Deep mutational scan, measured.
Amino acid sequence: MTEYKLVVVGAGGVGKSALTIQLIQNHFVDEYDPTIEDSYRKQVVIDGETCLLDILDTAGQEEYSAMRDQYMRTGEGFLCVFAINNTKSFEDIHHYREQIKRVKDSEDVPMVLVGNKCDLPSRTVDTKQAQDLARSYGIPFIETSAKTRQGVDDAFYTLVREIRKHKEKMSKDGKKKKKKSKTKCVIM
């Protein structure tokens, strides 16, 4: 069974824990209790493949930012979460993405942009803004509501699919490099 290491990042209060708990335990946590770091595991079937999701729910508070490099190193894919009623959390996505790329030393890291709290009427981040940002990053965008469960499975499952595509691409690139290195030079 394939294991996928997913990391949920975003500013404090955007609903990272609520999304994760909704996926794992099928219930909505409405009281806000700032996370330092929590880890969850769940076995699911995605596109006919049974897999184990190892999900790291991270601290959004700035005082825990020193811990970010460590979990970013171990993560295979990242859910970059903002709240649709919090423009600052949307603007912060850029910083999370840049930090992930720096730590992973790669421009090509599996990510999904997630606009959470889409059940709320007080939207300050337009869907088109988020779609445009995701398009500019070359990553999928999904709106979710941890409260109603809308888009929750889709967000995590899409990230797994992005990781699969990335692994497939990397193995193809690896095979191309191996083929090239088999060419021999004969000096007579």
Rank of each mutant, 00 (worst) to 15 (best):
T2A: 11
T2H: 14
T2C: 12
T2W: 02
T2M: 03
E3C: 10
E3T: 11
Y4T: 07
Y4P: 07
K5L: 01
K5A: 01
L6S: 00
V8G: 00
V9D: 02
V9R: 00
V9Y: 02
G10I: 00
G10S: 00
A11Y: 02
G13C: 10
V14Q: 06
V14D: 02
V14H: 02
V14N: 04
V14T: 07
G15Q: 00
K16S: 06
S17A: 02
S17Q: 11
A18Q: 04
A18Y: 02
A18R: 06
A18P: 02
T20Q: 09
I21T: 15
Q22N: 14
Q22L: 01
L23M: 13
I24T: 14
N26H: 07
N26I: 04
H27M: 11
H27F: 07
F28W: 06
F28G: 11
F28K: 08
F28V: 10
V29C: 11
V29K: 10
D30G: 08
D30H: 03
E31K: 11
E31F: 09
E31Y: 06
Y32E: 13
D33N: 09
P34K: 02
P34I: 04
T35N: 05
T35K: 13
T35Y: 03
I36W: 06
I36Q: 14
E37I: 10
E37A: 08
E37N: 15
D38P: 12
D38M: 04
D38I: 02
D38L: 06
S39Q: 04
S39Y: 05
Y40W: 06
R41D: 10
K42C: 04
Q43D: 12
Q43L: 04
Q43E: 12
V44D: 14
V44K: 08
V45C: 13
V45S: 12
I46F: 04
I46Y: 05
D47H: 04
D47F: 01
D47C: 01
D47N: 11
D47T: 02
G48E: 08
E49W: 01
E49Q: 09
E49S: 05
T50F: 05
T50I: 03
C51Q: 03
C51P: 06
L52N: 14
L52W: 10
L52S: 15
L53I: 12
D54Q: 14
D54W: 01
I55R: 04
I55G: 12
I55S: 09
L56A: 14
L56T: 14
L56Q: 15
D57W: 13
D57R: 03
D57L: 11
T58M: 05
G60T: 08
G60W: 03
E63D: 14
E63L: 01
E63Y: 05
E63A: 03
